[in-house]
Design a protein around this nucleic acid. Structure first.
Length: 437
RNA sequence: GGCCCCAUCGUCUAGCCUGGCCUAGGACACCGGGUUUUCAUCCCGGCAACUGGGGUUCAAAUCCCCAUGGGGUCACCA
């Protein structure tokens, strides 16, 4: 009987969950779910200096946010020291490892590499072969008693009966060392799938100078987990047809390592924005406003005094203009605060023209006379004004827009005024007339 | 530098395994045009790639070799 597919994601808790790590986790998760297998989470905290609980928590939070749930774990390597010790002793006893002493670092245990060739059939790259004469003996247990990465990784993968190791191709050169270890330890060797790396927009290794690289940061900036999942899934994998938007279920059904690329991909933030905008547009407005509240609060606006109904309308107007959730606040701030920021260039462009003064004064008068300030009444009123002045509607709508919003772009003018309400509209219109005209 | 991996539009990719259906398809971006009260959306149209050189073959983006380029890795870090 074929053993059940078992994969793992083993982050090192030395920082945030990196976008590349997230994709590795995703591919493992997708592979496990596709094969109805097991997805194990293992925290590789064998670097006592650099590991932290905060980092662990952040990584767990990011995985949870992305919806990548694990079936077992998290296991902490720091809690499994006795297991590694057992295998170190075994290798020592069998003469496959030996002590090495360093005057400064202390006594460690080193594994002996045998001469020969080690090759393996990578699920993505095909056969990869190494000459072990080029590989040096390496430390498996550090002077502090903790196992080294290669050792702990192999022992755990062996003990946990991992069937497939899906990881970044920066691990290819570690693989022969690990295979030597599997053999020495008597474990079954798992299948390896080395997935290509994600590069920054300039083609170099993704790092802080490329802007956001952590899942946390994308979360804060207002990207939806669905977007991130969909987007990174397609960075190196494709379903084979032209479909670009896939639900989790579709991804699980269609995912296959056979369709994972060999080539590294650049992270294109522009396309990510486009995709996030699409996801926001397709989201039910009710769900959208729930996600919007935190951003409104973070911007310092009062959420107590606003109603769901009002916010719902505002969100409806702006949902197709957003790339990220945080865009919402920057675009709609004039609705939350009376501190309207007037863009001088725009003011110049729409106010400093002949006739604008009398036009806006007339608009002020007429708007103050209408009762309900509904979209319907506003439209009737404003269109009539434009007609009477013999101008195109845009010539009237733009100055009004600038007067109440401060910018040349917003949602439709009738909807904008309706949502702002009569009082604020007239106040701002009056203020603009007095200030700029 | 040694070793390893990789190579299709600016970017993500389809096609490559199982040569001919490829005058290389889709998407983002970009450039036009349309809709429109602005922006955004939406709809049309356009630009744009098989790294180079050798082979193999009737036929190569697809197979082989070399060159070039890019990336990774060479820790008591993972």
């Amino acid at each position: 009987m074929e053993s059940k597919v078992t994969v793992r994601f083993p982050p090192s808790p030395t920082g945030f969950l990196h976008i590349g790590g997230a994709r590795t986790a995703l591919y493992n998760w997708l592979f496990a779910r596709h094969h109805d297998g097991k997805f194990i989470l293992r925290i590789e905290d064998t670097d006592q200096l650099r590991s932290s609980e905060e980092a662990t928590q952040t990584i767990l939070d990011s995985l949870t946010w992305l919806g990548l749930d694990w079936d077992e774990g998290p296991y902490y390597q720091s809690n499994r020291l006795n297991i590694y010790q057992e295998y170190v002793d075994k290798l020592l006893k069998e003469g496959k490892a030996s002590y090495v002493d360093d005057p400064e670092k202390g006594r460690a245990v080193s594994f002996k590499i045998k001469e020969g060739t080690i090759d393996f059939d990578d699920l993505i790259h095909g056969n990869i072969s190494f000459d072990t004469s080029l590989i040096k003996d390496f430390v498996i247990q550090k002077a502090d008693g903790f196992p080294s990465y290669n050792f702990a990784c192999v022992v755990d993968d062996g003990v946990m009966e991992i069937t497939h190791v899906i990881r970044g191709d920066d691990h290819i050169s570690n693989t022969p060392r690990q295979i030597a270890l599997y053999k020495a330890l008597g474990f079954d060797i798992p299948k390896f799938a080395h997935i290509p790396m994600i590069l920054g927009e300039d083609g170099t290794r993704l790092s802080k100078r490329h802007g956001a690289t952590s899942v946390t940061e994308y979360h804060e900036r207002g990207y939806l987990p669905e977007t991130i999942i969909n987007f990174i899934a397609l960075l190196g994998w494709s379903p084979g047809d032209d479909q670009e938007f896939l639900t989790r279920q579709e991804m699980i059904e269609k995912f296959s390592l056979k369709r994972v690329n060999k080539t590294s991909a650049r992270f294109d933030n522009v396309k990510l924005d486009w995709m996030n905008g699409k996801y926001i547009m397709d989201m039910p407005t009710k769900s959208l406003i729930e996600k919007l509240y935190p951003y409104i609060e973070k911007a310092g606006f009062d959420t107590e005094s606003i109603s769901d109904e009002w916010l719902y309308k505002l969100a409806e107007l702006y949902k197709e203009r957003l790339k990220t959730l945080s865009d919402f606040v920057t675009q709609t701030s004039p609705f939350f605060s009376d501190k309207v920021v007037y863009d001088s260039v725009t003011v110049e462009k729409f106010f400093k023209k002949d006739g604008v003064s009398s036009l806006l004064r007339d608009a002020y008068k007429r708007l103050s006379e209408i009762e309900s300030f509904s979209v319907e009444e506003l439209e009737t009123c404003l269109r009539a004004i434009a007609t009477e002045h013999g101008i195109g509607f845009g010539k009237l709508a733009q100055p009004i827009r600038v007067a109440v919003i401060g910018k040349g772009a917003s949602a439709g003018i009738f909807e904008t005024l309706e949502l702002l309400g009569k009082e604020k509209t007239l106040k701002r219109l009056g203020h603009a007339i007095n200030t700029f005209l």
